[in-house]
């Protein structure tokens, strides 16, 4: 059957709304207001305030990614062992929160974390000292982990669920103990899921401007905040595009590393 033409509308769509817009970012990033070629907008990343924002973004997103991985892996293992047949139910439990607006959910953490908030209420009830949580980098990390944890759990869960139980049983029969089986069999087989999970968490965490606005007060600027401001309040699209190009280098880098571990796209998230 020759039905290639059915893809034609989509191909036009993809060129018009995916490829061309990205080329426009490149064009704006590499020109100045008169339209002349320049590297200035890209080099602007080396100015102290931009370096500071980029470094902070990298640090916070790395920490959140690691925390997500450490929380998600045991969770995925437990869920796989428990409800082998109820995959859709588990996916549903993670997608369900998305039906409550993500800005509201993140804002709710303000109520939980603030000085007279719920968490400090519980602490004082237990006669523990109150914590200063809101408007700190820690609160931003919490927001990132909270928002992106499902994107780490689902790919790892999918990969673990596909592992043939006989392979694990064989390892145990051949005398490997629980830890050896995990390190030599389960963990290597789950690398595609881990790789996919890491990009799915790292990229949105690195580039967010919403979570830092909502939970970091207005004092903590991430690279996403800087770019957003260039497009909305400062209206310097060329500089904003230039900084976006730098951001895309990091995004591409993490995608390349991820595809190295996940050659067949096995760890596709959903």
């Amino acid at each position: 059957m020759n039905k290639k033409w059915l893809a034609t509308p989509y191909l036009f769509w993809a060129v018009a709304f995916i490829v061309i817009p990205l080329l426009m970012v490149v064009y704006y990033g590499m020109t100045d207001k008169t339209g002349a070629f320049t590297w200035e907008n890209v080099i602007a990343i080396t100015s102290p305030e931009h370096v500071k924002a980029l470094m902070l973004s990298l640090l916070l997103s790395l920490i959140s990614t690691i925390i997500c991985l450490l929380l998600a892996y045991p969770l995925a293992m437990i869920l796989v062992a428990k409800h082998a047949s109820k995959t859709s139910f588990i996916v549903m439990l993670f997608i369900l929160p998305m039906w409550m607006n993500f800005l509201l959910r993140t804002l709710a953490w303000q109520t939980l974390l603030e000085k007279n908030g719920v968490l400090n209420g519980i602490l004082s009830f237990l006669h523990l000292p109150a914590l200063n949580l809101i408007n700190t980098p820690g609160a931003i990390i919490l927001g990132m982990v909270y928002n992106f944890l499902p994107f780490m759990v689902l790919p790892i869960y999918n990969v673990l669920a596909k592992i043939d139980i006989n392979v694990i049983n064989a390892a145990r029969d051949l005398g490997a103990n629980g830890i050896q089986t995990f390190l030599k069999i389960t963990l290597p087989l789950s690398f595609p899921g881990i790789a996919s999970g890491i990009t799915m968490v790292f990229v949105p965490a690195l580039t967010t401007f919403v979570i830092s606005t909502l939970l970091g007060g207005s004092k903590i600027l991430l690279i996403g905040n800087v770019i957003e401001q260039e497009f909305t309040t400062a209206s310097n699209w060329h500089l904003g595009s230039g900084l976006s190009l730098v951001l895309m280098i990091f995004v591409l880098l993490s995608m390349v590393i991820s595809s190295f571990f996940d050659k067949d796209g096995e760890g596709a998230a959903l």
Binding site: A7, L11, A14, F17, I18, V19, I20, P21, L22, M24, V25, Y28, T199, V203, P204, L206, T207, T208, F209, G224, I227, E228, F231, W237, G240, S241, S244, L247, M248, V251, M255
Partner: peptide
């Protein structure tokens, strides 16, 4: 090639997708 292009909006940073579309519409 097509699947590679298709994956871009999913894997790319949302802020970049957002500004790229904004630049397209405005220009």
């Amino acid at each position: 090639i097509i699947m590679g292009v298709t994956n871009i909006p999913m894997l790319n940073a949302e802020i970049v997708t957002g500004i790229s579309l904004m630049l397209l519409f405005i220009s």
